[in-house]
């Protein structure tokens, strides 16, 4: 490896370490913008791409875009004809904006979007599609006018983009804690039989406990599940997968 590519790598690894430790989305914007700046990028956006009736502006996670450009882009609904957004849905590999294909004759709006982006200082850029288990989840797209587009620089931006996106998602939509079961195993047992239509007396016979004890377990389960009555408790327990029938 050449000395230069080692430096590209080191910069990217340092960025990853730092971005993973950041506590706020604003800090991610600042650090990512600064890191991209070393390769000549001036703007970036981390966003989902709208499907069906979704609104683009509600899918944006982080951005460092010229204010005028974001206003124009959303007002004009550019996302629908942006060749970069269209190409992002077609590939898993990062690509330069300039390589996103469109036919200026058939899609004059696409040509207009690329021209207006250039007016805002974004003559070219790099787009990284982010795929999850169910397909395209997001895209990270960075632009500027004087970019280092060497393979090593693009590789560094590719790597950093994925980690910036992951941190943004962690900070903006924190993962739910894995759910701990609320009910004891006895309560689950009683609720399972209840869900199957058995009366307290019948459950008592099955489990060899008294009917009042069964009712005590039901009451305790209702309390833990915040349920108004026995039927409600059964529904909540099934919904939480603490009871399977």
């Amino acid at each position: 490896m050449t000395g230069q590519s080692v430096d590209y790598g080191r910069g990217a690894f340092e960025f990853i370490e730092r971005v993973c430790a950041l506590r706020s989305a604003t800090d991610v914007v600042r650090l990512f913008h600064e890191a991209l700046g070393r390769f000549g990028y001036e703007t970036f956006i981390i966003t989902g791409l709208p499907n069906g009736g979704q609104r683009f502006e509600q899918l944006v996670l982080l951005k460092h875009w010229p204010a005028g450009w974001f206003d124009l882009y959303t007002r004009e609904g550019y996302i629908l004809d942006d060749p970069v957004a269209v190409q992002c849905r077609r590939t898993v590999e990062p690509f330069e904006w300039a390589s996103a294909p469109y036919d200026p004759q058939r899609h004059p709006r696409s040509a207009e979007i690329m021209r207006r982006a250039a007016d805002f200082g974004m003559t070219n850029g790099l787009c990284v599609p982010i795929h999850g288990f169910v397909g395209l989840e997001a895209c990270v797209s960075a632009g500027g006018s004087d970019l280092d587009l060497s393979p090593q620089a693009k590789a560094a931006v590719h790597l950093m983009a994925i980690y910036a996106c992951n941190r943004a998602r962690q900070l903006l939509a924190p993962l739910a804690e894995p759910r701990k079961p609320l009910l004891t195993s006895r309560e689950r047992e009683v609720m399972t039989w209840t869900a199957m239509g058995k009366s307290a007396w019948e459950i008592g016979c099955i489990l060899r406990i008294s009917a009042p004890t069964v009712n005590k377990h039901v009451a305790s389960a209702m309390h833990k599940l915040g349920a108004a009555n026995k039927t409600h408790a059964v529904a909540r327990a099934i919904e939480r997968r603490e009871v399977n029938i």
């Binding site: 599609p129 982010i130 795929h131 999850g132 288990f133 989840e137 996106c165």
Partner: peptide, 11 residues
Amino acid sequence: EMWWLPRFHEA
């Protein structure tokens, strides 16, 4: 393959 990396993150 790099396009798998976000899947690992998701997991």
